[in-house]
Design a protein around this nucleic acid. Structure first.
Lengths: 245, 245
DNA sequence: ATGCATTTGTTCGTATGTATG
DNA sequence: GCATACATACGAACAAATGCA
């Protein structure tokens, strides 16, 4: 005989595992644990709700099928990240992207200097190796959380005041407009993924186990001249790239 | 005075390090080591060619400047991956993609069954949860090397003979054509990246440290009806996604 | 490299309430 | 009332994956 008779479930009420799912759903919606955070172990939840571990698993399984959490053997259950969709279009601008998600755009300039083009940059910008280029490195924020780490290269030949414009203007579009480039568009993006360096992981606030999405972009002006060649790094799975051909 | 006088090299012949570079270049072209593979250590190469390690380093440096190999301190030298550019367009087809790179397309079906749609699939296919869907899992090969692992979902309601068509026809386009869907196009792709599972790493023959590019695709027919919802996984850095808006 | 602790995944068995015929 | 099938719930044990010292 078992130590305690199993509680029957009334037919007009939710089952125990449904109640557990409802409770956890509400708590996750309230932010505990936050997106990306870990739920207590199944054993801990079983103790908290005073039920068998199987019953907890039923509830967690429901949340996982809904996509609200992800369960990983040996690691635990994790609240799904709230994904920022980055639409790769010919005219995507950082601040517009963030605002479209009802987040507060922000950013900080990490580096802004003039250097000589090395081989890969020269090829991307279609200028001679060793030509003067302006390098801008920037950390993009949405609601204060890092969502992008971008390195931009501009040919210094674009205009004498570019370095100053980039320093004074809040965004790249504004800086280019200030030196007379009213419009530009994305010509091509090459996307791959790799583990972050220690520095990248620290700046983007992700564990080193999460890969980065890496996009190599070429932007051209109305005349087809290359005005920017850049490397954008996005933390996964916080950011997702979306292409609508 | 040195123990042994340095051998002069005849001016009309390659230097020793150039000969070494030439030898290694030929061997790499022949596939040993294969792309992504590790070359013997500098010490081992020095022993093999009966030269000083510095001489080997000269040769390896030349190959690295060519981009044929990558040298990583403390790890070794590795043959560069031959990157396959996957152009994400509205009508990209697997076999065309591979052939455009002058590779031999191939593939093997891992699974082909009818199941019930779970939440995420139902959302992607725009059908009710639990609806019958056909699942096709396929490993894509280029010259016998794995380049993609794709899971396709088709609404069973598309046509009664779809399962048989997918079994009998060599490709997806052909199977869809066989049940009367002459044309379809990619409506949207959502791209992210994550570490591979043990199974994915084994199938795609990559170490678990290399992330996968993961693309979620929705394909629609001429009338805008969703005919396929799929998840494509590509090994990095063997495959790169290219978008030309 | 190895073992250990933690956590999820799976499979036994047992018991009870609900629905069906 | 009874037999049956099914979902729910509990208990125990072991397997498999992961992270860490």
């Amino acid at each position: 005989m078992p130590a305690r008779a199993p509680k029957p479930h009334a037919k007009d009420r939710d089952t125990i595992w449904q109640q557990i799912a409802t409770t956890l759903r509400a708590e996750i919606a309230a932010g505990t644990p936050p997106p990306g955070g870990r739920l207590p172990s199944e054993a801990a939840l079983a103790a908290r709700f005073a039920v068998n571990r199987h019953t907890v698993r039923q509830g967690l399984g429901a949340l996982a099928r809904e996509g609200l959490i992800q369960i990983a053997q040996g690691r635990g259950s994790f609240v799904a990240e709230d994904v920022l969709d980055y639409a790769i279009g010919p005219r995507t601008r950082f601040s517009e992207w963030i605002r479209r998600h009802n987040r507060e755009p922000g950013g900080q300039v990490l580096r802004l200097i003039e250097i000589r083009a090395e081989a890969s940059v020269a090829r991307g910008l279609d200028v001679a190796e060793g030509s003067p280029v302006i390098l801008l490195e920037r950390l993009g924020l949405a609601d204060g959380r890092p969502v992008s780490l971008t390195t931009h290269h501009f040919p210094a030949a674009l205009g004498a005041g570019l370095l100053d414009a980039l320093r004074d203007q809040p965004g790249i579009s504004a800086a280019l407009a200030a030196i007379g480039i009213a419009d530009y568009r994305r010509q091509v993006s090459r996307v791959t993924a790799r583990p972050p360096t220690a520095e990248e992981a620290a700046l983007l606030r992700i564990p080193r186990s999460r890969p980065l999405l890496v996009a190599e972009n070429v932007n051209v002006d109305a005349a087809g001249r290359v005005v920017e060649f850049g490397l954008a790094r996005y933390p996964t799975p916080r950011v997702q790239l979306v292409f609508e051909p």
